[in-house]
């Protein structure tokens, strides 16, 4: 287990009694969650349980209808100024990478820093190369995403998010679209990121990653947080029956 010494207790994400509906479908029910600076939370649960929707609410890719979400002391409302401030502090990595196919790897990484953060082009490129080196693909910088393997694309996506120098990183099933032999390279990148003290919320089925990195594991089902615990207790001693059933399904294969 990775130990992070500079963990403070000030929550960077506060979610209070938050609800969301898709039409008439009540997809998130009474979610309350505090995330501290430097904390690493893994969210798991069966498909359709609302775990992706939950983290997409945190940077307002989905809009919640009731309750409060406060990120970095800014409340998420319809106000565009707040929204842009939050989005440049919160990085997101998607299941399907979502790299921009018409731009090179380097341009993918520098686009937002140059235009959103108004960084000079040279500084943005230096930063991008530094982060591409950190995810171990600096030699691919001038290629297009379509020329890379899935694992490489996902590492570029991680570097692209980090180029905005976010305080929080959201991962929405980052390894689900990858071939088995590529999952490890992406997980290794995420573990290294965790070691730097980044605040991370990770939706994943990779329980090995959860055991190794997470400070806290959340189990969601049917739009509710069923159980939240530290990984040791979560895996060895689950309290809720649904958690037990879920764990038996994904661990015994």
């Amino acid at each position: 287990m990775v130990i992070n010494k500079n963990k403070s207790t000030k929550p960077v994400i506060q979610i209070k009694e938050m609800h969301k509906w898709f039409g008439n479908f009540h997809v998130l029910k009474n979610i309350s969650l505090d995330v501290n600076q430097g904390e690493r939370i893994v969210i798991c649960g069966p498909s359709g349980s609302g775990k992706s929707t939950l983290i997409r609410c945190i940077n307002r890719l989905e809009v919640h209808q009731q309750g409060d979400i406060i990120v970095n002391n800014v409340e998420l409302t319809g106000d565009l100024k707040n929204l842009e401030a939050i989005r440049s502090d919160v990085g997101m990595v998607f299941q399907s990478f979502n790299l921009f196919p018409h731009l090179t790897v380097l341009e993918n990484c520098t686009l937002a820093p140059i235009w959103v953060k108004k960084l000079p082009k040279k500084d943005a490129e230096e930063l991008a190369m530094e982060l591409l080196t950190r995810v171990k693909i600096p030699e691919q910088a001038l290629k297009y995403p379509g020329q890379l393997s899935g694992g490489q694309q996902q590492r570029v996506a991680i570097a692209r998010s980090l180029c905005m120098q976010p305080k929080i990183m959201l991962f929405d099933e980052p390894t689900s679209a990858l071939d088995p032999e590529m999952i490890k390279e992406v997980l290794d990148t995420m573990i290294e990121l965790a070691e730097t003290g980044m605040t991370m919320l990770v939706v994943t089925h990779e329980m090995g990653f959860a055991k190794k990195v997470a400070d806290s594991v959340i189990f969601m089902d049917e739009g509710e947080i069923i159980e939240q615990n530290d990984p040791k207790n979560f895996f060895n001693n689950p309290k809720n029956d649904r958690t037990k059933l879920f764990l038996s399904q994904i661990l015994n294969h």
Binding site: F94, F100, L103, W115, R160
Partner: peptide, 23 residues
């Protein structure tokens, strides 16, 4: 254009005109 392209641009904090011009 896949929806994910806009989501990625949104997540990076890009404005409507930036998204339109670059993505």
């Amino acid at each position: 254009i896949p929806k994910g392209q806009y989501e990625a641009a949104d997540a990076l904090g890009m404005s409507y005109w930036q998204k339109t011009r670059f993505i």
